[in-house]
């Protein structure tokens, strides 16, 4: 399980998704470039916290004989359902504000992909 590599990938993916969604609303990419780079700091902190606190423990707590694939198949569906429900609730509460919806959408996709990365780095 390669956590540093997963954190780098997750930060990159969530930053791309977050800004891609925001740019679809207001396409002023030139002026926003500094903020895009600056945003990598909070995004990486968020990714580190979420991955280390909510995803990695599933893999850490596995029994020695259990395969990573089994952990993924057993727990990921329920994790995805809970995270999706929370993100949808957040977006509804925010009345689908572009920035918050971008945050929740990127959070859901990044966490889902992180499950895969964590399991696959072990398999490879």
């Amino acid at each position: 399980m390669n956590i540093p590599l997963t954190l780098v990938k997750a930060t990159g993916l969530s930053a791309i998704l977050f800004w891609a969604i925001i740019f679809t609303n207001k396409f002023n990419y030139i002026d926003t470039i500094p903020f895009v780079f600056l945003s990598l700091i909070p995004i990486s902190i968020c990714c580190a916290l979420v991955i280390c606190l909510t995803i990695a423990p599933f893999y850490w707590s596995k029994h020695e004989d259990t395969r990573y694939k089994t952990v993924y198949n057993t727990y990921f569906p329920f994790y995805a359902i809970i995270i999706f429900s929370l993100c949808l609730f957040g977006s509804i509460q925010a009345d689908f504000d572009t920035h918050l919806t971008a945050f929740f959408a990127s959070a859901f996709i990044t966490t889902s992909k992180s499950w895969e990365w964590l399991a696959k780095t072990d398999a490879s």
Partner: peptide, 12 residues
């Protein structure tokens, strides 16, 4: 689950 994250699960 299929509707929200079937792609990831299938891909894995």
């Amino acid at each position: 689950f299929s509707s929200i994250a079937g792609f990831f699960y299938r891909n894995f």
